[in-house]
Simulated assay, not measured.
Amino acid sequence: MLKKFPPPFSTELYEQLSLWVSQQQNVRGINLEVPLNLSSVLEEEDGSPDFIYILYQGDKMTAAGSVVDILKTKDYEIGFAASDEQTARGLMSVIHQDLLSLFPTSITAVIDERATLEKNALLELGANNEVCEAQLMVSQLSGEKPAVPIELVEYHFSRHNDYREVLMDSFGDEVEEAEAIIQLSLSQPSRTLYGIHVNGATVGTINLIRSDDAFITALAVRPSHQKKGIGRAALHEAVNMLFEEGYRSVSLDVEIKNTHALKLYEEVGFQVQNIFQFFKM
């Protein structure tokens, strides 16, 4: 029997899902907690899953999936896990058809690169692996902070166009995508968007997420100001800020093919913890 749960999610559901995920991770040696957004299930904010699907055989859980539209642009991301390949295929087929009825802009499934049965299920459903991302973590910075006069300044509406232009120039985003990133940061209490200022000019952005754990997203530097140590200096500043607030580690995600950024993060002290694959449905 398949059950679909909309938010808000109960503590009972969280505990049931958490226990099942923990058991699966221990047996299979893969990361399911991140793709399923387990740490966000009980948060009443836009980063939480939009829906949770659980497949039962009697009283026993055999598969679970979460769906989230982080930027509220109908770009749906599915994290899922199952006890066997056939069950995984059945669950994803149902979720996929369900999301098609919502007229999505895109549907992407995310899995740990070691999740063989989920990968096989996606390939059989015709999904294509387009992106691989590494999740990195730092608990102690390496190297010296570059002697660049940067300042991290919290978002202010008077600089809104500057933030948008930075994101568009750095990531190649359209106006709507850049605006969605900014609005996500402004709508969630756990997120703080900073401008990276050099001599009073906004040359970059960096977003800090302060929840149970600390994360960095949306690190961007204008192409005209890259290769000057600004990104490295901003990382040092942001990570030290979070350490001073009591966090013992800081995490971030980066595409594997972005070798320049990956090298920078590793030189600063970040180490790869997990690699996730993203499949377009």
Rank of each mutant, 00 (worst) to 15 (best):
V268C: 00
D50K: 11
N31I: 05
L19P: 00
Q271K: 09
R232Q: 13
N240K: 12
A234Q: 09
H160I: 10
Q277N: 06
E174N: 09
Q57F: 01
E266C: 08
E245P: 14
L13C: 04
F80L: 03
A109Y: 10
H236I: 10
L102V: 04
E77V: 09
Q226C: 08
L36F: 03
A234L: 14
K257N: 13
L32S: 11
I107P: 07
I78N: 10
S249V: 06
S83P: 00
V166G: 00
L122E: 02
L2Q: 03
V239K: 08
M92T: 04
F243Q: 06
V21K: 05
V153F: 04
Y247G: 05
H156S: 15
Y194L: 02
N37M: 12
S22V: 10
M281H: 15
Q183R: 15
E15M: 05
L42E: 04
V166M: 01
F215Q: 12
Y53T: 02
V131F: 12
Q277R: 12
E133R: 13
A238K: 04
Q135N: 06
Y155T: 00
K257F: 12
T108Y: 01
D162E: 14
R248C: 08
E44K: 12
Q25R: 11
V68A: 09
E124D: 14
A82T: 01
V198A: 04
G172M: 02
T87D: 11
Q97N: 12
S22A: 00
N207Y: 10
I54H: 11
V198Y: 03
L123M: 02
L184W: 07
L123P: 04
E12T: 12
E237P: 01
T205L: 03
S48W: 02
A121I: 05
V68C: 02
F80S: 08
M281C: 10
D46L: 15
L122R: 03
Y76P: 11
N129I: 02
H225N: 09
G126A: 07
T62E: 13
I182F: 01
E177T: 13
L42A: 12
K3E: 15
G195S: 15
M92P: 00
I111H: 03
F243E: 06
F270S: 07
N207W: 10
G195K: 07
V239P: 05
I70V: 11
V175F: 10
K4G: 00
L242P: 08
F215A: 06
S187H: 11
L117D: 01
A238W: 03
I196Y: 13
V203R: 00
S170K: 06
L13K: 09
R28V: 06
V272M: 10
E43K: 15
T202F: 02
A218L: 13
N37W: 07
A127N: 06
A180C: 06
V67F: 01
T105D: 12
